[in-house]
Design a protein around this nucleic acid. Sequence first.
DNA 1: AAGGTATAAGACACCGGTGTCAAATGCAAG
DNA 2: CTTGCATTTGACACCGGTGTCTTATACCTT
Lengths: 351, 351
Amino acid sequence: MAQDDASTDSGRTKPTINDVAARAGVSKKTVSRVINGSSLLTDSTREKVQTAIKDLGFVPNPQARALALRRNFLIVLLHDNPNAQTVLNFQKGVLEAIKDSDLALVVRPVERASPTILDDVRGFFEKQRPLAALLLPPISERADLAALCAEMGVRYVRVGSAVLDDDRHSIASNDRDVVQAVCTKLTDMGHRRFGFVRGPQGFRSAAEREAGFLAAMDAAGITHDPSMTVEGNYRFESGIAAGETLLSRSPRPTAIFAGNDEMAAGVVHAARQMGIQVPEQLSIIGFDDSPTASHIWPPLSTIRWPIIDMGRIAAQKLVPDFLPERAYKFPLPDVLDSTFIDRMSIAPPQD
Amino acid sequence: MAQDDASTDSGRTKPTINDVAARAGVSKKTVSRVINGSSLLTDSTREKVQTAIKDLGFVPNPQARALALRRNFLIVLLHDNPNAQTVLNFQKGVLEAIKDSDLALVVRPVERASPTILDDVRGFFEKQRPLAALLLPPISERADLAALCAEMGVRYVRVGSAVLDDDRHSIASNDRDVVQAVCTKLTDMGHRRFGFVRGPQGFRSAAEREAGFLAAMDAAGITHDPSMTVEGNYRFESGIAAGETLLSRSPRPTAIFAGNDEMAAGVVHAARQMGIQVPEQLSIIGFDDSPTASHIWPPLSTIRWPIIDMGRIAAQKLVPDFLPERAYKFPLPDVLDSTFIDRMSIAPPQD
DNA sequence: AAGGTATAAGACACCGGTGTCAAATGCAAG
DNA sequence: CTTGCATTTGACACCGGTGTCTTATACCTT
C-alpha cells in the first residue's frame, strides 16, 4: 500500500490539509475550497483533490476550522424542562438530523429562576462559541434569551406550544387546536360539567392548553365556572391536590382535562382515593403521552406531541447548510400536529 | 473607566492573550503559564498577570487551546440506555460537576446492535477529539469500547451495576447487595414462593440483580424453581407478559421481584387483570425509582440507585484536574449505595 | 495576434493559544 | 567578586485550517 513517502507517513499520523495538497499537486487553499464546496473550481481540480482526500482518508480538523472561523461546530441545547422524556426525545430528533454531519450536540441546562441566567448563557457562548442554540420550553419563551443569541451571532430556534418567533426561528406544536378538538369530543359525548387542571403560570403551554379548553367550552355553549379551573405545577402531587379540590365540588365534574399526564395521573389517584370510578364516573385526559400515561390504570387517553420530529426539524431549520443529506424538503413546517391517543380513561357521562 | 488605549479597546473586542501580556509587561508564554497553573513562576509575576487578566476580563479561547493541545474540552456521553430518566439524571450529575469549568457535555447515542459501532465511535473521536468519554450501561459493558477510548487517548469512566474496570475507570452501584437485602426483607416477612422477572440477556444489571435475588433465596433456605424466573426486556409490555405467566402458575408466587420499575408496573397490571390484590395477595418490588413507580397504584416499593451522584463522581474521576473547586475529597468511591424506597406494594403473605 | 476581462489557483498572514529550547536571572559556593 | 548551577522568562515556530489579495490561466473581442 505504501506507494510513496507521503502515504507511508499517512499510516502513522493523521493526514493534514498539507498532505492532501501535496498529493493532489495543488495549494492548501485549493484543498480548503474543495472542503468548503466553493463554486469557483475546475471540475478536474476538484476531482484531483477529492481523490487525494479519499486516498489519504483525510478528515479536516474541526478545532482548526473552529479557530479560523471563530465558530465551533456545536449545537447547544438550552433547557430547563423538567420532563425527562420530552428532553430526551427532543435530543433524539436533533441527533437524528445531525447524525452524519460534523456537528455535535451539547446540553446545557439553565436555571429559569436564576437572576444571572443571561450572564451565564453569555459566558457559555463566549467560551464555546457554538454555531447554534436550541431553546426548549419554558425558557424558549424568553425573548431576552433569543435576543442574546441574535446579538452573539448564534443561530437559534425556539420550541414551543405555539409559534414564538418568525418562521426561521420557531417550531411549534398546535396545543390549542388539539386540546380544543379533544375537549369537543368530550362535549359531543355529552359531558357538560368540566374540571380543568391548569399548568403553572409563566408556561405558554399552560396558557395555550387552557385557551383550547375554553374554546371548546364556548363552542359547546358551556359557561365554564372559573372555580372549576385549578392550577398545578405539572407534577404528580399537584395533580392529586387539584383532583381532590375539583372532585369535592358539588355537583362534581364528569370530565377533567389536565395540563399534562403527570397531573392527570394525580387526578386518577385522587379519584381512586375518593372511590370514584374512572372512566365510568369520571373521564380524564392528559397531555404528553409520557410513559406514566400508559403505565397507570386505567391507561390514560392523552395527546402525543411530535417532539422527536420537532427536534429533527428544529435542527434542519438551524443548520440546513451543515446537514449532509438534503433529503428533507423546504419549506420546513412551523407547526406540527399533535395526535390524540385514545386509551381507556374517557367514557360518556353516566345518567 | 477607560484609563488607557488598551482598556478602551477591550470594550469592543475580546481581549487576547497578547493584550494581557502587554498589560502585564510579560510575554504571552508567561501568561499561558499562569492560565495553566504552571508551578515555575514567581509569585509576583503570577500576581501581575492575574491582575491584568482580571482587569481585562480575559477568557482564554478554547478553540485555540484545543488546536494547540490537540484536545477538545468536551466530555462525551456515550449511551444507548432506553430509560430517559436515568440518562437525564446522569447528565444532571455530570453537569453539576463540570458547572464552573471550561468543559462542555456532548451527548452521543450509539446503537448497541450496530456492527459498525466501533468505527462510528472512532470517527466521532477523530473528529471531535474529546477529552473524555462516559460510558453508560449497557454499552459500558463492552470492553472493546473502553479499549478504543484508551487507544485514542480519551479518558473514560464506565458506569455499571457492578464494578466493570479498575477504580480509575469505573463507578458502580451495588445492585447485587441491595437486591439481596431487599429480598431478604421479603423472606423475613414470611414469603416463600417467589417469582423473578429478569432483565434481558446481555445486561449486566440483569445478571447482578438476579444474583442478588438468588443469594437471598439461598440465605433463606429457599430452593428457587428456575421456571419461576421469566425474562423480560425492561419494558412495560414484557412485564405484563411475565406477570401473566408467573401468576398463572399454581401455586402462585406471593412475591415477585422485577428487574426494573417498568416491568414491575407490568406485573401490577397483569395482577389487576387477574383480580389479584396488590399487596394483599401479591407483593411486588421494582428497581430504579422511576416516575412510574410512584404514579401507579399501589405506589411501588422500589430501589433507588444514586444515578445523579454517579454522574457527578464519574465526572470527578474523569477530569479532576479540570474542575475548579476541589470541594470533593479523594479517594472517590467506586461503589455507591442504592436505597430501598418502601411504598405500598409489599405486605406479608396471606398464607 | 494582441488586448481585455473573467475566472481559477496560489502566497502569505492570521486565528489564539502551546511546546521547545535558548537566554536571562537569582542565588550559593569558592 | 567570580563561577556554576538551578530556576524563571522569553523568542519563535507550530497546531491545521481560512481570509485577503495577487498572480496565472482561460476565454472573448476586435
